[in-house]
Amino acid sequence: MQKFTTLTGIAAPMDRANVDTDAIIPKQYLKSIKRSGFGPNLFDSWRYLDHGEPGMDHSRRALNPDFVLNQPRYAGASVLLARVNFGCGSSREHAPWALMDYGFRVIIAPSYADIFYQNCLKNGLLPVVLDEDMVQRLFEEVYAQEGYRLSVDLGMQTITTPSGRNIHFDIDPFRKHCLINGLDEIALTLEHVDEIRAYEAQRRKEAPWLFHEARS
């Protein structure tokens, strides 16, 4: 997993509640068997005027001028400001892959859907939770000031605004540790092979039917 320590970048506002993962990366791109290359299709149906399909040259498609990420002032954004229940719906990990491939490394929202939140953490995309009033204030500041940048320090658990205001955020200590060190969670789990085997042996005795092959 990609490490995350600190970042300073342009913040872009995604001013809608309940943004679902179908909107973040539409289904036609889920046919890919790779983990990369989803960036050009992030928010595809909002971002372009035409309907996109895999295999198109996306750099030649007409952009929707009304879509927020197409505005020049948000070019190169790496912090996404979002509303409640961001990432709801489908469990597709293609959603955080697309956000990262586009260039986002931090999302700030009042709440996330559970599966999406986990998927972000497993890819080095930092989902910050702030209360709704704080998020509202950030939205207002982003709209008010072109080139608005936020600095995010995971070690310190702070976000710093251009005016120098520090905002604290909470994150699970284990998740923080994994993100800062870019740890491979599978390798961590495999340190407990003996415990897994012991559990399995016990369950085989207690509930052997859980280990059945089909009897068709």
Binding site: P96, Q118, N119, I186, T189, I196
Partner: peptide, 12 residues
């Protein structure tokens, strides 16, 4: 679960 977790379950 997401795909990272699919891999995690397969492996562990």
């Amino acid at each position: 679960i997401g795909t990272s977790e699919v891999e995690h379950v397969l492996a562990t």
